[in-house]
Amino acid sequence: MEKAGIPVVQITSAVPIAKMVGSNRVVLGHGIVHVTGDASLSPEDEKELRRELVKKALNALQSTDKQG
């Protein structure tokens, strides 16, 4: 999609793979098995964690600094 000029932010815990394939905007996810969550947190804390991750992703979309 990036090749087609569409801004993409990738949230992933496998950052080296994302970089290897050429992703320009990468945000470190919270684990392979729950990229945007954490079962060990309370539902409220988990949602807050997800908000933070999404905010980071949105910031990356609005920037042209190499992310990740």
């Binding site: 090749k3 993409v8 496998a14 990229v35 999404v54």
Partner: peptide, 22 residues
Amino acid sequence: MGKEMVEKVKQEGVDAVILTST
């Protein structure tokens, strides 16, 4: 598949994508 998705994304007028990868 990436190319097919691009077609869809363009057709729908999507400006940006959040991709989550395991």
